[in-house]
Design a protein around this nucleic acid. Structure first.
Lengths: 227, 227
DNA sequence: ATCCTTGTGTTCATAGTGTTCACCCGCCCG
DNA sequence: CGGGCGGGTGAACACTATGAACACAAGGAT
């Protein structure tokens, strides 16, 4: 897939530039422009092809959600990641009702933003992967965006180096999938431990679970790195 | 908290009544009305105080999402639970972009609906509980709307993937019926396994059994997806 | 009537999965 | 320096999903 096009809206130019720089650091995303006002944003977004808008809700000539309304009224398939210092629950709810894909409170770290962007990309891949949905895929699509993100990224009970080894084994094996035992062999741990890490990665949405039928006996569950 | 007020929209009166009956069975919810057209729904919803709309997307005078647009345009704080047989991913995405709180595919069981309603109530309680949000509470609010597990039905002895593949094979073959062997071929399992899943679906009432006479030898038992 | 052909329904070995629990290792504190 | 303590690990175990094999069933052919 080509890069996802991101548009950044913030009233302070340096902040907008900072967000843009963050976005560029995440592979698979490109920044196609910035704006500082509701008017400017709506003007651009009703014309230009954009996938995602990083939208500061606090703008000089109105509320950021007005931009969303403008886009929705124009019927454009553009997603919104709201960014704001506003902590009022009412704002959060309004944003949810307008279908934003995420709501990030300032101040946030690069890791926070990257996580949202990656969740968004998973969502887009889910979308591209299927034309006809089952309830499970619908749930997955909602879930990808609504996942209570581990913004603390604290994988409790897991060791960082083993986690990296597991990820390494999976990326090496691409595009084929590996069973828990195969990962265990590759990493040099027991199957149980490999399974723990794979489970974590699957919950996190970073690997996909599937089944490998064929031999007699119970089928294998396989894990594949998502790209 | 007082009961959450639910409004039901479906073009077929009996179906609307059925949904309403389902809703009444869930403690903490009450049904405050029904409608069968986009016009009627918008007319009521722009006046009446309602918390949640069970919205069938297939309506005689337009698309269900038009109702959502009408409500959003009127700026009313009403949430939507979309209900539809439409499996096109594009529809799911549109619904997401309009901020629906859930998307339930027909046919669904009472347990499925109850689960969504309860998730929605948790969301509302979350909302009422705090006036000022942290990133964690924002995440919780987004996450509450996510279906916790697709555990609406977790049949023992059956794998979810295979079950979906079987359902997929049957819906693809609509309106003709398939024998157990044909399903097995389509799914890639043995006949025994296919039969197990078909048996389950038949017990569950989601699939109809019939006979196919004709060839020489014993007649075949066939299974057809029920609309 | 009897066989033959084709497909049903069931049993059971097999090869996996998922979970529990005792252990071990490093670290902090007395 | 010895004794707790907290997190990560894997041996052992209970359970689960699958298909080969088999016994039975229901029509048509002879």
């Amino acid at each position: 897939m080509t890069d996802l096009r991101v548009f950044v809206v913030d009233d302070e130019p340096e902040v907008a530039a900072g967000h843009a720089a963050y976005v560029r650091r995440v592979p698979g995303f490109e920044v196609v422009g910035t704006a500082g006002t509701v008017q400017a944003a709506v003007a651009v977004l009703t014309r230009q092809a954009v996938d995602l808008v990083l939208l500061d809700l606090n703008l000089p000539d109105g509320h950021g959600l007005d931009v969303v309304r403008g886009i929705r009224a124009a019927g454009r398939p553009i997603d919104i990641l709201a960014i704001t210092a506003a902590r009022e629950v009412e704002h959060v709810r309004s944003a949810l009702a307008l279908g934003v894909v995420g709501y990030l409170l300032k101040p946030f770290t690069f890791a926070d933003l990257r996580e949202r962007l990656e969740a968004y990309r998973r969502f887009r891949e889910e979308l591209a992967g299927a034309t006809s949905a089952s309830q499970a895929t619908v749930d997955a699509m909602f879930g990808e965006l609504r996942r209570p993100t581990s913004s603390g990224t604290s994988p409790k009970g897991l060791a960082r180096d083993v986690l990296e080894a597991v990820i390494g084994a999976l990326t090496d094996a691409q595009p084929s999938a590996l069973s828990a035992s195969e990962v265990a062999d590759a990493v040099g741990t027991s199957r149980v431990t490999a399974r723990r890490y794979l489970q974590y990665l699957a919950d996190e949405g970073r690997v996909a679970r599937a089944q490998r039928l064929g031999g007699s006996g119970r089928p294998e569950v396989t894990f594949a790195w998502r790209r």
